[in-house]
Design a protein around this nucleic acid. Structure first.
Length: 564
RNA sequence: UGGCCCAUGGUGUAACGGUAGCACAGCAGAUUUUGGUUCUGUUUGUCAGGGUUCGAAUCCUUGUGGGCCAACCA
């Protein structure tokens, strides 16, 4: 019976976002039998997490509905676009986990666009205007006062055709004239007040070289490019909503495939700037070390920081798609990377700020290799051994001479478990002439060894450690948010909101031997400290690790509460 | 003061005229050889007024608040 074929978990289906609803309706009604989307970056900067939202949306939709998604570089402005960006964009898309069905360029369609411009001219719907930009702006009026036509608006199609050809042939200098669509100078939508179609730029284009000296404007190019590729759902951000009537107008006048534009709200993140202009400023003015600085929200920065493609896709999914302006709490991004790395990252011992710990009752020359799990969340990750000896290093913050309430690490008279090793009791400290503590003295409980503990002792705390003679030096880079305010973009000067302590370099952190020969991009959890990944600067002689994100730290919260 | 878009806990996002749900964040507890993980519980919300309706977050209307639009940028 039909009833038996009903999906059992129908009720648990994920809700659709508004674009998916439109698509499903289009598919249901037969308006489309398959969908096609595109991701259209301008190659004038590096991709950032905001683009990732768009990439995941466009490619994800194609994947979900069995359609196709192209990468189309929007390269209509040769003066701001570069090959470096073209390359990084593709690399980032692939790293994120998507492969374009086709890799295309708006410049692939320059010839077609030129022919179509002539079609509009012949229909009396476009004209060459020799006014200055200032004159044109003035003639456009304002949102409340209609524009006024100038004499060029009445030039005949024949004359316009000839003029336009001369434009194309390079007979005029840059900015001498412009091709405009003839639409409606009184429209309440400013984009319809005879928008520019072509401008003159005697500039070398990264793909077409010196073939053209006229280049199409965004509005004149985008919709037709979509149409040529038979894009069914052209998804863009909110600020383009008022361009949509123009998008539709060009397509209708040309009588070509009716791609439709839909707008969604771009991603904003707390404590982050997302505009390419601002990011470029951070790079050019040296506030960060480059586009891939781990503090940058660029995909290359996040990658170097240790974010995984999976975590970013999950994040893009969780933030949702809607038309409401939003600002997402970075803690959601951090949640996503912790969630991913918790399952996959191998655990390792590292001590960032070492404090010597001496086991006064442990033999001087003895070394034990103790077994410890690589990842308690993943039994298949197996075990490794770590060396244990009389002199160890622990984290400075794991010892306090006068501990506050609820501190259950080490303190004089206190007892703690050394992870995967023994329980130790603190018997005192060693000091230098200035009275500064140089070492913590402990007795270890021989029968408390992990795996064969017969001591019957219970301890509240477990801390990580390193055998002093086996520990190796590594550089560790601790990153913090780049901005001190939630919404730096709304500041008068966003650069004044930069966090002066966004990077702390620890040149001589200590790590266990297993951390010596790792590959750039490998992820680890430094036990009790956070997730780290090997930086490209790393060498076997001097390993370098970036902190991706700390572990959740409820003790830090508690300590802060006590402090206040 | 022209046009367009938007308004649900702290932040996002569902509910398609019929019990306002989920996630993150927060808080409390349990478990834990990572103060991690996991698990449990929990605080907090429909911008305002009017209307339609047996019933409105949802429809209509008027406000209010926010965003976008007058680059030879995209």
């Amino acid at each position: 019976m039909a009833a038996n074929t009903e999906p059992i978990r129908e009720a648990e289906k994920e809700p659709l976002n508004f674009i998916e609803e439109i698509i499903e309706e289009d598919l249901r009604s037969g308006r489309h039998t398959t969908i096609r989307t595109r991701f259209p970056p301008e190659p004038n900067g590096y991709l950032h997490i905001g683009h990732a939202k768009s990439i995941c949306l466009n490619f994800g939709l194609a994947r979900k509905y069995g359609g196709k998604c192209n990468l189309r570089y929007d390269d209509t402005n040769p003066t701001s676009e570069e090959q470096e960006y073209v390359d990084s964009i593709l690399a980032d898309i692939r790293w994120l986990g998507f492969e374009p069905d086709e890799i295309l360029y708006a410049s692939d369609y320059f010839d077609q666009l030129y022919e179509w411009a002539k079609v509009l001219i012949k229909k009396g719907l476009a004209y060459v205007d020799f006014s200055t930009p200032e004159e044109i702006a003035a003639q456009k009026g304002s949102p409340t006062v209609p524009g006024t036509p100038n004499k060029y608006r009445d030039t005949s199609p024949e004359e316009n055709l000839a003029l336009f050809e001369r434009m194309k042939n390079g007979e005029f200098p840059d900015g001498h004239c412009v091709l405009r669509a003839k639409i409606d100078l009184a429209s309440p939508n400013m984009h319809l007040r005879d928008p520019y179609m072509y401008r003159i730029k005697h500039a070398y284009h990264h793909r077409t070289g010196n073939k053209w000296c006229i280049y199409p404007m965004y509005d004149w190019a985008h919709g037709q490019c979509d149409s040529i590729e038979r894009i069914t759902h052209s998804i863009c951000t909110l600020e383009f909503a008022s361009h949509r009537p123009l998008y539709d107008w060009f397509i209708e006048q040309l009588g070509i495939f009716p791609s439709k534009q839909y707008e969604f709200a771009r991603l904003n993140l707390t404590y982050t700037v997302m505009s390419k202009r601002k990011l470029l400023q951070l790079v050019q003015e040296g506030y960060v070390k480059g586009w891939d600085d781990p503090r940058m929200p660029t995909l290359s920065g996040l990658r170097r920081r240790g974010y995984t493609p999976e975590s970013i896709r999950e994040f893009a999914h969780r933030v949702g798609v809607a038309k409401r302006e939003n600002i997402i709490d970075v803690s959601l991004l951090e949640f996503c990377i912790r969630e991913d790395l918790n399952k996959r990252a191998l655990r390792r011992f590292a001590v960032l700020r070492p404090l010597k710990l001496i086991l006064t009752n442990y033999p001087e020359d003895r070394v034990e290799w103790l077994e410890t799990e690589n990842n308690p969340e993943d039994p298949s990750a197996g075990y490794r051994t770590v060396p244990f000896s009389r002199e160890l290093y622990i984290e400075q913050e794991d010892f306090m001479e006068n501990p506050p309430p609820k501190y259950f690490r080490l303190y004089p008279g206190g007892m703690v478990r050394l992870k995967s090793a023994y329980i130790v009791v603190c018997t005192g400290v060693e000091r230098d002439a200035q009275g500064k503590i140089t070492a913590v003295l402990c007795r270890y409980i021989p029968e408390s060894r992990s795996g064969s503990d017969t001591s019957g002792l219970k301890v509240k705390g477990t801390i990580h450690w390193l055998s002093a003679s086996h520990a190796r030096i590594a550089e560790v880079r601790l990153y913090d948010r780049l901005f001190q305010v939630e919404d730096p973009a709304s500041e008068e000067d966003f650069k004044k909101a930069i966090n002066p302590n966004s990077l702390e370099i620890i040149p001589q952190a200590l790590v266990e031997p297993a951390l010596l020969n790792t590959k750039p991009g490998e992820h680890f959890q430094f036990m009790r400290l956070g997730y780290f990944c090997t930086d490209p600067d790393s060498t076997p002689e001097k390993p370098v690790f970036n902190r991706t994100v700390t572990l959740k730290d409820t003790w830090a919260k508690e300590a802060k509460k006590q402090h206040n």
